[in-house]
Design a protein around this nucleic acid. Structure first.
Length: 154
DNA sequence: GCCAACGTTGGC
DNA sequence: GCCAACGTTGGC
């Protein structure tokens, strides 16, 4: 099976790499994704063992900070059904869930933050959605070549 | 189905 | 904190 590659964004004020490192089994349920394009990738395309870059967004130094793997394939996002959750969506019906999660496990921290500025400056990454203007996708695929190139920057 | 208004994302 | 870019909503 071909292992595939992804990038997932998180705001460190909400959930940082440090938070993930402190979770039991260094694994978290990646909840709260409320974008259909991202949902479709989570639900339809992510497989156990796929590799994931952990990206810090909306912070002082946005960039890739960790390397993770998918530890559990898609299942309905329980936060959508929880009225006390900030991610509650009354229109998501347990019988026909609208939103999905995967579990993500930290494999290792990167040796350093590979910053958005560096990624933008690297011509091999010019086609990445991440470096395109106005991009807001919180889950995106990464090609094998992009993956290897990014790791070579470490 | 169009599109203006609105809310959110996320870099700066 | 600002604001451009984008996705969603809802009136028509």
């Amino acid at each position: 099976m071909t292992v595939r590659h992804w990038l997932m964004k998180s705001e460190p004020e909400t959930f940082s790499l440090d938070h993930l490192a402190q979770m039991p089994k260094r694994t978290t349920m990646w909840d709260g994704v409320r974008n259909y394009q991202a949902r479709n990738m989570i639900r339809d395309d992510m497989r156990v063992g796929d590799l994931v870059f952990f990206y810090h967004s909306n912070c002082a130094e946005p960039g890739i900070v960790g390397l993770c793997e998918v530890a559990r394939a898609a299942y309905p996002d329980p936060s959508a059904f929880d009225p006390s959750s900030p991610y509650h969506d009354p229109q998501s019906d347990p019988a026909n869930p609208r939103w999905y999660v995967v579990d993500v496990k930290l494999k290792r921290r990167l040796k350093r933050n590979i910053t958005l500025g560096e990624l933008k400056a690297a011509s091999p990454l010019a086609d990445m959605a991440l470096v395109r203007r106005g991009n807001r996708l919180s889950v995106m695929p990464v090609t094998a070549d992009e993956w290897d190139f990014i790791l070579s920057l470490e």
